[in-house]
Design a binder for these strands. Structure first.
Lengths: 115, 115
DNA sequence: CCAATCGTCAACCAAATGGTTGAATATGGC
DNA sequence: GCCATATTCAACCATTTGGTTGACGATTGG
């Protein structure tokens, strides 16, 4: 029953997890390094990463004793696509929509994160 | 603490609430009419609508004894914009996006809530 | 005015969430 | 082989969530 979108949106609802995603935008990271800036236990971070993984928002790959985390854009894109349907029902919203298309469709676009 | 995005994403994490939003895409609706296609109590729907309202995803206006619900796109747009920062860091295939447009924008599309 | 309709409130319940701590399981370095 | 490092597991806790039912307050129609 619990749809892919359920998991994605639920994962995105937590500020710690959104912060983790933002960090991973910069680079892949080990679990310990992900945990470093936060004030909660490593176990709690590990749980957050599990939730992000099951939501398909990140992937974890163990190399040696280190488990690397990297963004997995598909789920984010699915959620984004779902929301775009609502951006369109009003002319005002075409702003964001057009910016999206512009960036997304230009072959030589600079796809680096802005932040 | 709980950010606007927290509330928006948490609200979007429930399939019933996403279905409600989809219904409201068609037209503004009274609470009772929103509840009609669902198998849960009116009180439960009322709670869902409160959550959507506090998340800024819909607005409710009482006229007479009927309370009308309508989409409020700002919060959705905020969430959408947040996610686009992630959609861009990799060249994207627009497949899913185009399929979505096809379904969602066709005038005779079946937008009824799916369970 | 009275009854029906619209919607919320209150109390309750089971399950999920986000956190803790302490022990356990790899793995790597020396 | 041993110890430190990296990460998860297990048990526990408080709070939130999504649902129920029944009573309640407004409003409308006849």
């Amino acid at each position: 029953m619990s749809d892919r979108l359920d998991l994605a949106f639920a994962a995105l609802a937590d500020p710690t997890r959104r912060a983790i995603l933002t960090m991973l935008l910069e680079d892949d990271m080990a679990v310990t390094d992900v945990a470093e800036p936060f004030d909660i236990s490593l176990a709690a971070i590990s749980k957050h990463l599990t939730i992000l993984t099951r939501a398909g928002l990140i992937a974890q790959e163990k190399r040696g004793r280190v488990k690397w985390c990297k963004l997995e854009p598909d789920a984010l894109r699915a959620a984004s696509v779902w929301m775009q349907g609502f951006g369109q029902f009003e002319p005002v919203n075409l702003d964001a929509f057009e910016r999206f298309l512009e960036v997304e469709l230009s072959p030589e676009a600079d796809h680096s994160p802005q932040e």
